[in-house]
Design a protein around this nucleic acid. Sequence first.
DNA 1: AATGAATGAGGCTTCATTCAT
DNA 2: GATGAATGAAGCCTCATTCAT
Lengths: 212, 212, 212, 212
Amino acid sequence: MDRRSTTMARRSVAARTRPRAKPGDPDATREAILDAALELFVERGFHGTAVPLVAERAGIAAGTIYRHFESKEALVNTVYRTWKERITGEVLRDFPLQASARDQFHTAWIGITKFVAEHPRAYAFLELHHHAPYLDPESRAVEQRTYEFAAVVIARGQAGGAIRRGAPPVLLGLLHGAFVGLVRFWREGRVAWTPDELALAEQACWDLIRAA
Amino acid sequence: MDRRSTTMARRSVAARTRPRAKPGDPDATREAILDAALELFVERGFHGTAVPLVAERAGIAAGTIYRHFESKEALVNTVYRTWKERITGEVLRDFPLQASARDQFHTAWIGITKFVAEHPRAYAFLELHHHAPYLDPESRAVEQRTYEFAAVVIARGQAGGAIRRGAPPVLLGLLHGAFVGLVRFWREGRVAWTPDELALAEQACWDLIRAA
Amino acid sequence: MDRRSTTMARRSVAARTRPRAKPGDPDATREAILDAALELFVERGFHGTAVPLVAERAGIAAGTIYRHFESKEALVNTVYRTWKERITGEVLRDFPLQASARDQFHTAWIGITKFVAEHPRAYAFLELHHHAPYLDPESRAVEQRTYEFAAVVIARGQAGGAIRRGAPPVLLGLLHGAFVGLVRFWREGRVAWTPDELALAEQACWDLIRAA
Amino acid sequence: MDRRSTTMARRSVAARTRPRAKPGDPDATREAILDAALELFVERGFHGTAVPLVAERAGIAAGTIYRHFESKEALVNTVYRTWKERITGEVLRDFPLQASARDQFHTAWIGITKFVAEHPRAYAFLELHHHAPYLDPESRAVEQRTYEFAAVVIARGQAGGAIRRGAPPVLLGLLHGAFVGLVRFWREGRVAWTPDELALAEQACWDLIRAA
DNA sequence: AATGAATGAGGCTTCATTCAT
DNA sequence: GATGAATGAAGCCTCATTCAT
């Protein structure tokens, strides 16, 4: 009845490759569903993705999804929170609260670009579902916390004279949007995700917000 | 199936009063449908908008929509192309091909912000449906043409030394994304759409792409 | 666009025979649905009756039901109220409020037995759905009003000395139950619905409640 | 598949404590299932009760039910027959075949009211599932045997002059229905189950069938 | 051209039943 | 015997589309 250690090992391997078939292990099934949902919601949008299609891509039966998630909405929200918390965690872990604004910016830039490179679909998902009407209050709270943290960092950079004056939300909207635009063009194949391009983009984005 | 020039002319009048007119005039009916569709696709998304609902908001019968558009997809695509061409036209009309990069930038900035202020829903629609899976090749071509023009302008700015070096698509992605991010935050009520904020944003965006 | 009079005539004939096919007339469609639902809910119960089955018996497509009723629950409730109001109206129209208790009893008996003979399925439906959990407050209110009227009549009969002492609800429960039991046995083919049997039953029921 | 006598004996003990015991004893498991099913079928109806829910209330796993019952239908039928036989047995045990009709009536009345008081849910179950479409022929046969015995007793009462003339099924339908109506009103909270009310009801029911 | 009732495929979800452990 | 995750048929309902008027 308990083969957790074995199956966990097996799952983590499977997860790193592709969606996969029915292992009979609840955790693996759950992961397969989350992976399939992530992909499909990115490819076709929430309403454009039929639940049975998610099941098919996950290699399970349609009904099985409802043993793991209460509803399609609960599923998107879980995907959303899982990845939003993950990216936030990865970027903010070891965030240099005492460093200069430029160093903080660099740290965040590296963290986010790394995440995008490793989990491009997850980043696309988060961006596409930003403020989607089917996100529940808890998901919005996660969103909001990230936003508030960023606004505070910006405000402190302004206080220190390193970041240009102006309402932090304006700068944040521009900065976040610029990065999203870059990623989007990369996904569309219009730009490459090379160190050179990224260095250029980083400098440009810093110039976007830095004080003159 | 399209009679853009005629209907567009009349449209601007209809739009300024009310949509959902049903005078028995085919062009007016068509416009009412396009207006209703624009509103609803923004409010509820493509999949969330039922065709009979569009008809109701347009003040006509459900079946009538199919006398003007082949399908729901044809309808979104027409809305998309209509507005994409319109914003492109408005921004590029009188575009100062001979002016300095900074002046060109300013002209474009004024044009786009004006469009956003006057047609916020249309801009939201275009942004929300960017690369949607139900957009057809022709709609994508319209997108592509805009993109190519912008890339050329950037490249010329680089050649003249006014715009920072780097692949034009990177700069374009950042710039376009920054603007979209600003508008999005404005729509979400996080920033105001005042001259001050816009001036700040314009300068920041110029710094994003200008040469050092 | 208005063929109301013609179609109404056609419908009332059809209604008297059997459920029927799609006439294209909304009222007739609605009636066909109500008739089919009445039959099936009696034969198989509410939860045992699939909506598409109702549609099939009504000779229409499944989706059509939802143009006439918001939900399956709304459908049962409409069937319930329609017939409950009808039987109440038929029995209470010309109810002799000033007559003796025995005459009142006889009047009600005749009215109800007539209704049962004419609309046996409707009576079965009402009895089977008495207090069903999916009946909405309005349906329950209809139920309640009938009950209260009967209780008052009983109480007045007791006041006049014609009806045996005791809590009116007890007598009402017994009396109503006895009649329902009689109808049930008739439906099951155990007793005949002949004047002789009915006269016997009427006398027995009167003896059930009359004063010694 | 049935081991009625063994399990029934043990059952009365289990029922008096709590259902949902799961001692690893097959008979106890079976009893727990039957108890849980009885409760739930009364509370939520046959179609409204999910098999896994029965399992949960019985304190066992869903699959286990199918080691004891072939199907959900087999389960209801077993519940039905178990209790139908039990009430019949309790009422007819020591039935005074030689006594007067009035005494026989009284004996039956006491037996049934006692059963209702002790097993209200079981009585509700039997009444609610009378002639349900998912009862199988054997269940109907059990019903039929009870009915036939009662008809014979009535006929003998008529032969002795104590019971009014008329087709026994008519009297039986009325009598049984009256009692059911009483119980139903009691369950709905409209009448109390007190000695006074019961005495009144007994006399009324006797007057329903007794000769003038 | 317009209407709007009707259609029926397809979407989300439930649940009776199976089966590997 | 028991488990409980998985199954997939079937249920309720929506909605893009058609067609008789």
